[in-house]
Each structure stands twice: as structure tokens, then as C-alpha cells.
């Protein structure tokens, strides 16, 4: 099942709607990394609220996604990790190291806007 990717100003928002297969998740990663270039986006939000499991494969794929997007000059923020999912990830030893996270879409947008503003200030 393909994940819809919404373009909102300088950002791309991917809202995962239901459980994903590994293939779906890899497709999402590749689509976002590609679209960051075609739309010249400055940030990516991946909303994982609907995911009831974030296991080692999903964590690694999200981490790779964030690192690839950064190499393309944009920022990624993962939003909506559910409390039980966070609990399980910690017990499994999954850290999403080096990846920005936020509580929900609104906080994610706030984070990206702040990032964008601070880079604009430093380049002026």
C-alpha cells in the first residue's frame, strides 16, 4: 500500500495510514529521497501514528531515510511514535539515533520551520 506524500510549502508530509510491509517502507524512503530533489523541499515529516510496530527493520529504514534526506540538504522529523511503541523500542535497544522526532504533526512542522528560519538567518 503506497503512502500518500503531501507537498506543503517547502515541506513534504508522508502520513502512514495503516500497517506497512517492508517493501512499502523502502518504497516510501526512496520516494521521499527522490521528491526532496524534484520539489526542492527543505524538510520531510513522516507521520507514524498509525504504526503499531516499529521493529529493527523499520527503525533502520527510518534512520536511513533521515540520513539520506540530510545528504540531499533537507531535514527529516518522525512524528507520532505511540507510547507503547516507544516503550517497546527502548526495550529492544532501538534508538533512532541522530533522527529528529516530535510528538505530532504540529510539533513536527514547528521544528522544521524553526530549522528553516535559523538556516536562513545564518545565510543572510
Amino acid at each position: 500500500m503506497a503512502v500518500p506524500i503531501l507537498k506543503q510549502g517547502p515541506f513534504l508530509i508522508a502520513s502512514i495510514q495503516s500497517a506497512l510491509t517492508d517493501t512499502d517502507l523502502v518504497q516510501l524512503r526512496d520516494a521521499l529521497v527522490g521528491q526532496v530533489g524534484s520539489y526542492r523541499s527543505r524538510g520531510v515529516i513522516v507521520d507514524v501514528t498509525a504504526l503499531d510496530v516499529l521493529d529493527s527493520f523499520a527503525s533502520r529504514t527510518l534512520r536511513d531515510l533521515a540520513h539520506m534526506v540530510r545528504l540531499r540538504g533537507a531535514e527529516t522529523v518522525i512524528v507520532g511514535i505511540q507510547p507503547e511503541v516507544a516503550f517497546t523500542m527502548v526495550r529492544l535497544g532501538l534508538t533512532l539515533e541522530g533522527v529528529a522526532t516530535a510528538l505530532d504533526l504540529e510539533e513536527g512542522l514547528f521544528y522544521l520551520n524553526e530549522k528553516l528560519r535559523s538556516t536562513q538567518q545564518t545565510t543572510q
Binding site: 510496530v53 516499529l54 507503547e84 517497546t88
Partner: peptide, 8 residues
């Protein structure tokens, strides 16, 4: 929370 652990 256990359902999530089990599914994972």
C-alpha cells in the same frame, strides 16, 4: 502495551 511487545 503487551500487545505491542508481542506483535514486535
Amino acid at each position: 502495551s503487551d500487545l505491542t511487545l508481542i506483535a514486535t
